[in-house]
């Protein structure tokens, strides 16, 4: 059962999505519509398929041996799994932030510059501007402006690393941002900063955020999707999901009875 809101256009449409890891079915007949420039959080117990769903959207599961993906996915009107689909364009359109901060073993500048250099061929001053802008957007600029050309990204603190990864992702100018538990490896202060960032980004980007933190989901999201055992149980306005869920299992999960 899917509740939809019509406040903004749908940017991601999924119909009848099944994902198998070998014999095991990880996602069962998922259908969902994600609204543009809103924050949607994906919640659910561990192993429920929410990360699989997220990674399937931008084809991050392709390298997994024995994976099989069925169903229809439309991202801004294009099927990322279509024959001859432009993978590079998909990466440009859909950015991703991971659970564990994963800066590359190079300077902060090089980390952020890598995307725009590759996707837009930017060089020199233009590139510098894009890097600075991305670092500002990720609220990292003030902390690193003195040595971001020399300092290795790996020498930052955990929270700074995560914001660096966000800056790296933003530098490519994605429309859609996928975040897979972006705060689960961070301390509360860093988490607050990232949450604030999510709020700022939502005006211009569509965000899908996987989280285990229900308060966080309630705080940051416009919509919430609840997954369990590979099924999308309930999907709708966050307020509705957290205060007046339709399903019993959703009720049990959001009230902390399991999970």
């Amino acid at each position: 059962m899917i509740e939809t809101a019509t406040s903004t256009p749908v940017v991601i449409g999924v119909r009848g999505l099944n994902v198998f890891y070998g014999e095991k079915q990880a996602l069962k007949n998922i259908s969902a519509e994600i609204h543009e420039k809103k924050v949607t959080t994906l919640i659910g117990p561990s192993g429920c398929g929410k990360s699989t769903f997220l990674r399937t959207l931008n084809r991050m599961n392709d390298r997994i041996e024995g994976i099989r993906i069925e169903g229809d996915i439309q991202i801004a009107g294009e099927d990322p799994y279509a024959k001859g689909a432009d993978l590079l364009a998909l990466r440009r359109r859909v950015g991703m932030v991971f659970q564990k901060p994963n800066p590359f073993p190079m300077t902060i500048y090089e980390n952020v510059a890598m995307g725009p250099k590759m996707h837009y061929g930017l060089r020199g001053k233009q590139l510098d501007e894009v890097v600075e802008e991305a670092l500002r957007e990720a609220a990292l600029w003030d902390e690193v402006k003195d040595d971001f050309r020399k300092k290795n990204g790996l020498n930052l603190s955990g929270g700074q690393q995560q914001r660096l990864c966000i800056a790296r992702m933003l530098a490519v100018r994605p429309e859609i941002i996928l975040m897979d538990e972006p705060c689960s490896a961070l301390d509360p202060i860093s988490t607050a900063k990232v949450e604030e960032l999510i709020g700022q980004l939502s005006g211009a980007h569509t965000l899908l955020v996987v989280t285990h933190n229900l308060q966080q989901a309630e705080r940051i999201s416009d919509y919430t999707a609840f997954f369990m055992f590979g099924e999308l149980v309930e999907h709708g306005h966050s307020k509705a999901i957290f205060t007046d869920p339709v399903h019993r299992s959703t009720q049990d999960y959001v009230s902390g009875r399991f999970g």
């Binding site: 991050m60 390298r63 990466r91 991971f98 590759m118 490519v172």
Partner: peptide
């Protein structure tokens, strides 16, 4: 770490 490869892949490398 696999996460570094993932990061690169998500960036389109």
């Amino acid at each position: 770490p696999q996460s570094m490869r993932d990061g690169g892949e998500a960036l389109g490398l």
